[in-house]
């Protein structure tokens, strides 16, 4: 029983026919070819598959694609480009927050929602915002630094 869904992916409206047992992660990676969203555990415990649905970070490995009908989905590919990277992407590069880079897309998306809602987070708020994104390379130190740096820059931009 396939069903057509219509949703926004990275700002563009998209129609897609999906089976009800298809996971959003697989649809994003395979049907939409957006491979920045990663499989890390499949059980919602690592955060590598994080995407934003209606601006909130969620786990695409535990989301049925059929449920995003009429919703707005944002992946890492939707927040910045080579020419115009998101301040978080810029800050991650500059501070050395990217080691292997596998957790990076999910990490940046979690951080984006944080900064969108709370432009000047404390260190504890930053840590809690990314608690669902595991990283085995960095020890999180430079990731937290990067989010602070982006926060300053984005705050500066708003003033």
């Amino acid at each position: 029983m396939k069903k057509e869904i219509e949703f926004t992916i990275n700002g563009k409206s998209r129609k897609l026919t999906v089976k009800p047992n298809e996971l959003l992660l697989n649809v994003i990676r395979e049907d939409l070819g957006l491979t920045g969203t990663k499989y890390g555990c499949g059980t919602g415990e690592c955060g590598a598959c994080t995407v934003l649905i209606d601006e909130e970070p969620v786990l695409s490995c535990l989301t049925l694609a059929i449920t995003v009908d009429k919703k707005k989905v944002t992946t890492i590919e939707g927040i910045g480009t080579d020419e115009n990277p998101h301040p978080l992407q810029q800050a991650f590069v500059e501070t050395g927050a990217v080691q292997c880079g596998f957790c990076t897309p999910g990490m940046i998306l979690s951080a984006k929602t944080l900064l969108d809602k709370n432009p000047n987070p404390t260190e504890d708020e930053i840590k809690r915002a990314i608690e669902g994104n595991l990283c085995r390379c960095t020890g999180y130190i430079k990731i937290i630094e990067a989010i602070k740096l982006a926060s300053v820059r984005m705050g500066g931009r708003r003033k």
């Binding site: 990277p85 590069v93 050395g96 897309p105």
Partner: peptide, 20 residues
């Protein structure tokens, strides 16, 4: 900066499983 940091932060298809 790490030479591959930008493409990684942008989510480019760089890992083993990122090809179809």
């Amino acid at each position: 900066p790490k030479v591959d940091a930008f493409p990684l932060a942008l989510g480019k298809p760089l890992f083993a499983d990122d090809i179809e």
